[in-house]
């Protein structure tokens, strides 16, 4: 039950107001801040300096892994462990493996995309300090919230609050960790 602050929340009415506030927070030199929105805001990735998400790579790796494993499985099953002669064709050839391997590649890549998304987002996480915010439930409705975290080197309980007030943020609230 520490009284250490987690960060300060400020609420904005429109996506444009949030976007411009985010730009100013960034320009003020803050680095550990985040925004919470009911839907992704166009242009926010650039303001926050988010690099290309690595989810695509996780998906690619799992997809490629599934493809290669199924080719291997088919070789093992139909050519090595129990050689199966069908229509006088070779026991193993690459084209015969394509369709099952391709299908399982899609399965692997899809599972990879989901797992990657959860892993990078650290979900599922059923408790979060922000859920204690008095008005945080409105984020999924129509509010656009900016958080400056207490771990930010520039964080100060008073100056940060003043900055958020000067940006036009409403319902400014300090969240405890």
């Amino acid at each position: 039950m520490s009284k250490k602050p987690y960060g300060i929340l400020a609420e904005f009415e429109t996506p444009a107001a949030l976007l411009s506030a985010a730009e100013k927070v960034r320009d003020a030199g803050y680095s550990r801040w985040d925004v919470f929105t009911p839907f992704p805001i166009h242009g926010m990735d650039r303001v926050m300096g988010l690099k290309n998400s690595l989810v695509g790579w996780v998906s690619l790796m799992m997809g490629a892994g599934a493809f290669v494993s199924v080719v291997g499985l088919i070789w093992f099953a139909n050519a090595f462990d129990y050689p199966l002669l069908v229509g006088g064709k070779p026991m193993f050839s690459v084209p015969m493996t394509f369709v099952p391997a391709y299908i399982m590649m899609i399965m692997g890549a899809a599972v990879g995309a989901l797992i990657g998304m959860f892993a990078f987002n650290e979900l599922p996480r059923f408790h979060h300090p922000l859920f204690a915010g008095r008005r945080f439930e409105l984020v999924s409705r129509d509010r656009f919230v900016l958080l400056i975290g207490s771990t930010d080197p520039k964080f100060s309980p008073t100056a940060t609050r003043q900055l958020l007030e000067s940006l036009g943020g409403a319902h400014i609230e300090t969240i405890e960790d």
Binding site: D34, F36, T37, P40, S53, V55, H128
Partner: peptide, 14 residues
């Protein structure tokens, strides 16, 4: 435990 964080949306959209 979805919060709607921009970082979450970023990976989610990808």
């Amino acid at each position: 435990g979805w919060t709607g964080s921009a970082r979450h949306w970023h990976h989610y959209e990808k």
